[in-house]
């Protein structure tokens, strides 16, 4: 469990980091929090010729609010997000979900940009950011672009990120004051990757459900919107009967894999149950 040899770069400015990525992107890996990359290196499952450590690049680790958007720098540690009063008040779903990532030592190293760029299908952040309709700010020497989270996320650990590109920040629309959320997952142990999970954000339209974004993760190729379940509840009055409809719509729409930790059938069932639990969190035991 020792990595093969690699070159190590530790740029101290964003431009330097981007220049290195431009030159070596195809056979380089960006080292952020290292919570996924370092084990992959030690197992020799990832064999980049070069690591570009961006921990020394200034300006990538702030949380700020501007024009109805929360902007979180890519190198912001998960633990910082978990304890940020701004995140707690403006994006409480993100704060709630962060507590499900690993354990405090892991969250103290792990970053939001790293989680997104790694895009583990069982990871909490891709799912939560999809539920929150976030934007991903990306930069390279060619320039800057902003991608919607849905377009950013690919299947099975892939993303739309080019080899020369770096995630700079994640931007989350604060949206309606009349919003509510739910987050639920089942893991074998506290802190393990989810067997199945659901992140959901809703707006309220009087006594009715307004917009609904319900995202399933764990055992599927990527964080996935459960649009049939969303359609089933949008514009309706929340109650247990409706939640049951959402459960059925969710389980009909999803087809998770079987692996050593759980069967696909169980994961599908769990997803339905967790949709109901997320709805109950959002609307109470209606």
């Amino acid at each position: 469990m020792k990595p093969p040899s690699f070159a190590y770069e530790a740029p101290e400015a964003l431009d330097d980091a981007l220049a290195l990525l431009d030159r070596h992107g195809d056979d380089a890996k960006v080292l952020a929090g290292g919570q996924s990359l370092v084990p992959l290196l030690n197992f020799r499952l990832a064999r980049p010729a070069r690591l570009i450590d961006i921990n020394g690049v200034p300006g990538l680790a702030s949380i700020s609010e501007r024009d109805g958007t929360i902007s979180i720098g890519a190198m912001t540690r998960q633990r910082t997000i978990e304890t940020s009063p701004l995140v707690a008040s403006r994006a409480p779903l993100l704060a709630a979900a962060t507590r499900w990532i690993g354990h405090p030592p892991i969250r103290t190293r792990g970053t939001i940009g790293g989680s997104l760029a790694h895009n583990d299908p069982s990871g909490e952040y891709p799912a939560v950011l999809l539920a929150l309709d976030a934007q991903v700010r990306i930069r390279s020497q060619r320039g800057e672009r902003v991608l919607g989270i849905d377009a950013f996320l690919g299947e099975w650990l892939s993303t739309a990120l080019g080899p020369d590109e770096l995630v700079i920040a994640v931007e989350i629309p604060i949206g309606s004051k009349h919003a509510t959320y739910g987050f639920a997952e089942v893991a074998k142990r506290h802190g393990d990757f989810a067997l199945a999970g659901v992140a959901a954000r809703f707006t309220l339209d009087g006594s009715h459900i307004g917009d609904a974004r319900i995202v399933a993760f764990g055992g599927v190729a990527r964080a996935t919107r459960l649009t049939a379940a969303e359609d089933a509840i949008r514009g309706r009055v929340p109650n247990e009967t409706l939640f049951g409809e959402a459960n059925r719509a969710a389980t009909a729409a999803i087809d998770p894999i079987s692996d050593l930790h759980a069967t696909g059938e169980y994961r599908r069932h769990l997803t339905g149950v967790l949709v109901v639990r997320a709805l109950r969190q959002a609307f109470g035991e209606a």
Binding site: P39, F43, K188, R189, H190, G191, D192, F193, L260, H261
Partner: peptide, 16 residues
């Protein structure tokens, strides 16, 4: 063998 790390071979922790 599918359980070749502590991600897959699950020991009880303080939580369990």
């Amino acid at each position: 063998l599918l359980t070749t790390s502590f991600m897959d071979y699950l020991l009880p922790s303080i939580h369990e």
